[in-house]
């Protein structure tokens, strides 16, 4: 990979998007084939052609691997795009979904559910989504009351997150039994994913991904700074709010699928940006595809590396992501130096 030094032509951008698409396809095929029972590509094709047949390969494909692979792809795409949007809107390279309260809000809702309705883990996706939206709503309200600047948004996010995290800790202190239900959510995993959950999240994620891509142009104008964007005729405040809501829905839906998955929203956009620059359309598309590929690959590794034991996907993301991220940081520093 070459660090972006000069221009990135449209052809280069298209090549990056295509490469990410192929990477995602590869990750998807590996995720579908590998696991406790290995499926050959031929078996895979056969399972698809035969539909929901009663063969072993068919059952594994339709009821285990496909929902899981789709969930990983959707989660990765949603988190990565959410990260791009937040980093651009807030002009902050460290912004990620957790910064506007998504994780803390979702976690709080799940912790409350684990305390109040210990058996009803089926409602976790909805509750976590609602919790995330509630927290983001509070952050937006707080920021609006204090002048709607980028810094009040980030500070509001940190405050609301701290408050919700304190509430989670309080709940778990008084009801330690709820910890089991909450812990699964906190480390993030696709272990008990079902097709119903995937289809439930696919619609909001698909729609918001499309909306984010359609808003690439105003997002790019916003990246030029508030004053310049406004002088070019952009309604800065309205566009920023809409984009933040899109990012929140994406991250909330991702969290509802997989629990809290660390820093995909930080690392994938950062990586892709080295290839595409800040031109938003290729950046959004490549991040969506690359994010999906990254999470699917990590999930495949999570369930095959120490089979029959399965690592939480969040753990693999960190162990794999951090070294790659650091390597890339050092590399770009060397290039600059």
């Amino acid at each position: 990979m070459k660090t972006l030094q000069t221009s990135s032509t449209p052809r280069r951008e298209a090549a990056v998007v295509l490469a990410m698409g192929l990477l995602m396809l590869l990750a998807a095929v590996l995720s579908l084939c590998l696991g406790a029972v290995r499926l050959t590509p031929a078996q895979l094709v056969q399972a698809i052609i035969q539909g929901r047949s009663n063969t072993l390969a068919g059952r594994i494909f339709w009821f285990v691997r496909l929902p899981r692979t789709l969930a990983a792809l959707l989660t990765g795409a949603a988190l990565a795009v959410s990260g791009v949007v937040l980093q651009t809107v807030l002009h902050n390279p460290l912004a990620a979904p957790n910064i506007i309260g998504v994780n803390a809000g979702a976690g709080f809702a799940v912790a409350v559910a684990a305390v109040c309705f210990p058996g009803a883990s089926g409602s976790t996706p909805w509750l976590s989504f609602l919790g995330a939206m509630g927290a983001v709503g509070l952050v937006l309200l707080l920021s609006r009351l204090t002048g709607a600047s980028k810094i009040t948004l980030v500070l509001g996010g940190v405050m609301i997150s701290s408050l919700f995290n304190a509430a989670i800790d309080t709940l778990l202190t008084f009801q330690p039994d709820a910890l089991t239900g909450y812990a699964d959510f906190r480390v993030g995993s696709f272990a008990d994913i079902t097709m119903a959950r995937v289809t439930g999240a696919a619609l909001p994620i698909g729609l918001t991904l499309a909306a984010a891509v359609l808003m690439a142009s105003p997002l790019e104008i916003l990246s030029l700074g508030d004053e310049t964007a406004a002088s070019l005729g952009l309604n800065v405040r309205a566009v920023r709010t809409v984009l933040l809501l899109l990012a929140a829905v994406l991250a909330g839906a991702a969290v509802s699928l997989a629990g809290i998955i660390g820093f995909v929203g930080l690392i994938v956009p950062h990586f892709v940006r080295q290839l595409t620059g800040e031109k938003l359309l290729p950046l959004l598309l490549s991040s969506a595809l690359g994010g999906g590929a990254f999470v699917a690959a990590c999930d495949t590794l999570a369930r095959t590396a120490f089979a029959p034991y399965e690592l939480p996907v969040g753990v693999v993301l960190s162990f794999l992501g951090v070294p790659v991220f650091l390597w890339q940081l050092l590399r770009s520093r060397r290039h600059r130096g």
Binding site: E220, S223, L224, G225, D226, E227, T228, S231, R273, G277
Partner: peptide, 11 residues
């Protein structure tokens, strides 16, 4: 021509 401009990472 605004005074406050973030670094534009575009061509």
């Amino acid at each position: 021509l605004a005074q406050n401009r973030p670094e534009a990472e575009i061509e």
